[in-house]
């Protein structure tokens, strides 16, 4: 018993010694892997979709080769990324699809996250069918007619209903509520990841089979598999406020960048650069296509883009 108490006391006192006896705010801790070996490190969060990878790849390439930073990337999904950003474990989030709740909490209340301006790309989520199918059945592009085609969209996973394919669990989606509230004869099936979803879509496209999927623009896959959007009840400001009662389309969102507040202030050239980083949908798709379809490494793809678009990125450094 005595030994145990001694050990406990020793552990507690060493803990106190190590940390100092005062308060320790764990929301102000950097990643233990940051800024190693005296080099300046920027930690960027990567989301799992390729567009986000393209942003990060180009930013990383310029930070490393033009500004002399060391860049760590961490795979964090959007919502946790907000938390990580607030805690300083991540310095920047380059593509956010709109999280008003988080924005309220971190940007307005706590002021631990600073807005980093627009990315220059406008995102839009919707339901899509392949164009080859829409051409044959033009009325499928209105949600009211979807039930008519439920039979054709059936798969083993969806059972007796039509399949509405969703992707990664991290994506912004109201699909389950939509299917319920629009009283559609469909089953939402999660592919589990974007890559899985793309594989499936390509497979379907190869065999010219019909499918209905959750998808978004900008997305490089449109170049490979042309798709047409299904019109949902039109979006009105606030119609998606209650996730249980949503019955309208997704909005068009100008994608935003966010920086950790401290980093935004003291991040020097890196922070200034990331604030100015702004490109177009075409730029992003160009890089994405190289990564996803031509199977280039993100670094090579970024290099190729940077080499051929000097005028674009020179402005970010001024």
């Amino acid at each position: 018993m005595r030994i145990r108490t001694t050990a406990a006391v020793a552990a507690m006192s060493s803990l106190a010694l190590l940390t100092g006896c005062g308060a320790a705010d764990m929301t102000k801790q950097a990643s233990p892997f940051a800024n190693a070996q005296g080099s300046r490190t920027v930690t960027l969060s990567v989301q799992s979709w390729v567009g986000a990878q393209s942003n990060v790849a180009v930013a990383q390439y310029i930070l490393e080769h033009e500004l002399g930073y060391r860049v760590d990337t961490v795979q964090v999904d959007e919502v946790p990324a907000w938390d990580a950003l607030s805690q300083g474990r991540v310095d920047a989030l380059l593509e956010d699809w709109g999280h008003p709740e988080q924005e309220q909490r971190y940007v307005k209340d706590k002021k631990t996250i600073a807005p980093g301006g627009e990315l220059g790309v406008t995102g839009h989520i919707g339901w899509f069918v392949p164009t080859y199918f829409a051409e044959k059945h033009p009325d499928v592009t209105d949600w009211k007619n979807l039930d008519k085609y439920a039979d054709q969209f059936r798969t083993p996973e969806s059972g007796s209903k039509g399949q509405l394919m969703d992707g990664s669990p991290s994506y912004v989606t109201n699909d389950k509520a939509l299917v319920k509230n629009l009283k559609l004869d469909y089953q939402v099936v999660f592919a589990g990841s974007e890559a899985a979803q793309i594989t499936q879509m390509k497979q379907f496209a190869k065999e010219k089979k019909p499918f209905l999927t959750y998808w978004y623009t900008p997305q490089w896959l449109f170049e490979k598999v042309p798709m047409t959007e299904v019109k949902l009840p039109p979006y009105k400001e606030g119609c998606d406020a209650d996730p249980e009662k949503v019955a309208c389309a997704y909005p068009h969102t100008p994608l935003q960048k966010y920086l950790n507040a401290d980093f935004a202030e003291k991040g020097g050239k890196a922070a200034a650069f990331l604030k100015k980083f702004k490109w177009t949908t075409e730029d992003q798709n160009e890089v994405s296509l190289m990564i996803a379809d031509k199977k280039m490494t993100p670094e090579d793809a970024a290099k190729k883009w940077v080499d051929s678009h000097k005028s674009t990125w020179k402005k970010w450094l001024s």
Binding site: T19, A30, P32
Partner: peptide
């Protein structure tokens, strides 16, 4: 997380020690 004493004086230290050690 950044204001309650339980976090400031306990979990914060735990978290700190971990970060320092790693």
């Amino acid at each position: 997380r950044d204001s309650h004493p339980l976090f400031l004086y306990f979990f914060g230290h735990v978290s700190n020690v971990v970060v320092i050690a790693v």
